[in-house]
Structure formats: C-alpha cells, structure tokens
Design a protein around this nucleic acid. Sequence first.
DNA 1: GCACTAATTTAGGCTAGCCTAAAAAATTCT
DNA 2: AGAATTTTTTAGGCTAGCCTAAATTAGTGC
Lengths: 224, 224
Amino acid sequence: MPTSESVDDYLRAILELSGKSEERVSSNGLATRLGVRAASVTGMLQKLAAQRPPLVLYEKHRGVRLSAAGMRRAWEIVRHHRLLELFLHDVLKYSWDEVHEEAERLEHFISERFEDRVAAILGDPEVDPHGHVIPHRNGTIPVREEVPLVEWPIGKPAVLSSVSDRDPAALRELQRLGLVPGSGLVVDESKPNASLLVRLSGQKRQIRLSIELALHVAVDASRI
Amino acid sequence: MPTSESVDDYLRAILELSGKSEERVSSNGLATRLGVRAASVTGMLQKLAAQRPPLVLYEKHRGVRLSAAGMRRAWEIVRHHRLLELFLHDVLKYSWDEVHEEAERLEHFISERFEDRVAAILGDPEVDPHGHVIPHRNGTIPVREEVPLVEWPIGKPAVLSSVSDRDPAALRELQRLGLVPGSGLVVDESKPNASLLVRLSGQKRQIRLSIELALHVAVDASRI
DNA sequence: GCACTAATTTAGGCTAGCCTAAAAAATTCT
DNA sequence: AGAATTTTTTAGGCTAGCCTAAATTAGTGC
C-alpha cells in the first residue's frame, strides 16, 4: 500500500474536511479543496475504495469517509506536514506564512528517518507554529478541545489555540494584530456575519476582526 | 520551463555520465543509470530535444549532450543534492551512507528558499560530505582537479578528494578503512584490474583495496 | 407528486512516462 | 566486404490522474 502524492492529498483533504466528527465528505467539497473537477474526485474515490484494504468507505451519492487504513495514512501525512512546518519555522527560519506551502510539497517525500530526526531535533514537539497538535509517531493524536473564535461567548477570557495555516495573507494580518497561539483575549462584541471586537489580555485597544478573518482562529475550549 | 522529476533525473544523469569532458552520452548508458529501458530513454531524449529552448542536443544514433539550458538545470539539481546531503549529515545527523538516497528524493522538491536557507545555515559550504564541490547559487561551478585513485602514480603522496556517494556498502567500507575526504595517503602497489595497496599518512599498516572499491575514490590532482 | 436545480457519476479523451516487440542502424568480427 | 552482433529507434500499449460533456440521482419549491 504505497500511496502516491495524489492519494495522500485526497486522504488528508477528507480528514480535514470531515472535521473531528464522523461526517461524510462530499465530492464537491473535495473537488474545491483539491482544485480538481468533481468528476476526477469520483474516479479517485472509486479507486481508493477498491484498494485492499480500502482507504476510504464510499457509497455513491452519499459522500465518503476514511477507513481505518486511510485514517492512519492521513494522520501520518499530517504529522509530516506539521513537523515540517515547525522545522521550517524554527530551524530554517521561515516566517509564519511561508511554512505551509513548502510543507505541503515536502510532506509526501520525506522518509521515516527524516521524520524521526526532525522530531528529535525539535524535541518531540506537541504543536506546530500555528498551534495545531502534532500526531504522535505511533499514530495517536493528542486531544485538544477547541472552539471557533466566532462561537466563543462574549466577555469570557479565552486563550488563542490555533490559526488556520492555509492563507498566508490572513496569517500575516493575524500576526500583525498579535493574534498568535497562546494570546489571551476577550471578545467584547460580536455582530453575526459582520465582525468581532476583541481585546488582547492586558491591552485596552480593541481589534476589529472581520468574520472571515475570525474564522481562521480557534480558542482553547478546555479553559471554559 | 518547469521540469518534472523525471526530466531532472535525465539531465543529472547526462551531466554525470558525460564526465567533465564534452562526451556524448549513449542511450544505453542512460538506461542503465536510470533503471529504465533504452526505448524509454529515446522517447525522453526526443522530448527534451524538442523543448524550446532545448534541454539536450540530440542526434539519433549519435548520443546526447546537455544544452546550455539543460546544463543550468542539471547543475541546479546537483546543488540541491549536495546541499541536502551535507544538511542531512551535519544537521539531521544522517550517517555518511544514508544521505544519498534521501537527497536523491528531496532534490526535486525543495524550493529556492529552502535551498538558500540551508546554504545559509551551513555557511555556504564548498563541498558535500563525500568531497564533491557544491555549485554556487549563480550556477558557477568551483573547479577542482581530481584524478581517479587508480590512475595516481605509485609512491606519490596524495590527498583523498572525494568518494562516490551512490553505493552505501562501499561508503561504509571506505569509512571503516579511514578513507575519507582529506585523508593523506600513498599508493604502494597497483596490480591493474586486481587491487591496490595503499597506506594512510602516518600509518604503517597497508590497506588492500579492490579495484572496484578504489574506483569510488578520487584524489586531489592539484597537488601533483 | 412534479418540475426544476444542484450534485454526482459515467463515458470518452488526453498527457507523461514507462513497457515490450520488432525494425533499423551502427559496430565488430572474420 | 559481408555476416553477426549490439545498440538504438520505432510502433503500439499501459497506468495514473486529470479533463469535458452528457447522463443520472438527489434535493427543493410549489
């Protein structure tokens, strides 16, 4: 069961689109995320489902979800991705918004040895530069309770937990505003579908965040 | 002119088979080196020659050589390869014989930024762990006069300049014997097509080297 | 429940890069 | 030189993964 670059991309996309829930993922959603046509997705899903063991569970017109084997491979790629992001940031001095693209390319090609050596150099880190947990070598995934910032109650102190890594411009903006993992903050005001007013811990200045930008941010839900 | 992994492999193989000279490289030689059939080589050479600008100069039945553009790309890949080898060895603590395989895979996928950052971390190094010169960023290649050990005169002190990186078992053996770049040595005896007797500087013990192993070794010819 | 729309799948094609088998050219041997 | 051998090229196929266009299924409003 050696997987190709494309297969890895599909598996990771399914994992990430299905969120933490067991939801089935739609062909269209995958097509958009992967930048291919829906017809191509259908073809690939049929192939992945036909593998032995199957990498996905697929019923036509009913979406797809990962099998146990698919799940394992997807998290493996995520581990590669997040270790690489941290490595690029900490060792090769990439900036916050540069790491994603390079990690996305390299994640498919590094060996187990590379993975292990990088993890060792970084001291078996728990999270990547965007605050996402790094799956363990053995496949277990540390649990982290997170809530999208836009769903966080007004007035309740929160700790910024992670930011999406897929949009460099948004990342630069968040960094400029001081919204990085670990930042303490309070939401002062929330206009649904418009914007949020947040304050960073110990600062008086309010920051206005567009919903679009706020959607990139999650806070630590274990601190409720 | 974005090049694929395959194209890069062909260009690098042509570069390395043509030696320093202007020799044309044969289809068979390429096929063997690349692990594909000769018919596949012919097909690829025709494509490379048909590109604008052409990456190779190819006349059927008469072998192939790199064009200026092909040369540029091939050396670029070599720079990637050698920087990666040194990086894997020095930073990620890979052993001498492990670096080649990983570098061979990754050389196709690292960005210019990655290349630059790695070079910076390593202090713009001149040579890789096997003693091969690292081409400069701008495409110039430092000159190094080398002679295969088997052609070095008997009794004349020499400095080991480089070893081939393609055979892990040979590398381990050479390392065990203390034959690493920088080692001083003298050839005491040379039986053509059989073996060499060499002595390391300051050691009395003679080392018997099979021709096969000796062919992996080159010495610094500027010290004649 | 039926008509309309949106989502999905099927059918048929394309390219890159490999393959085998057969043809052609070059080289070597006598 | 001519025959035998080796090298190289041509011809025709295959797979992965993408595409477009057309057909089908699902979902929605009336």
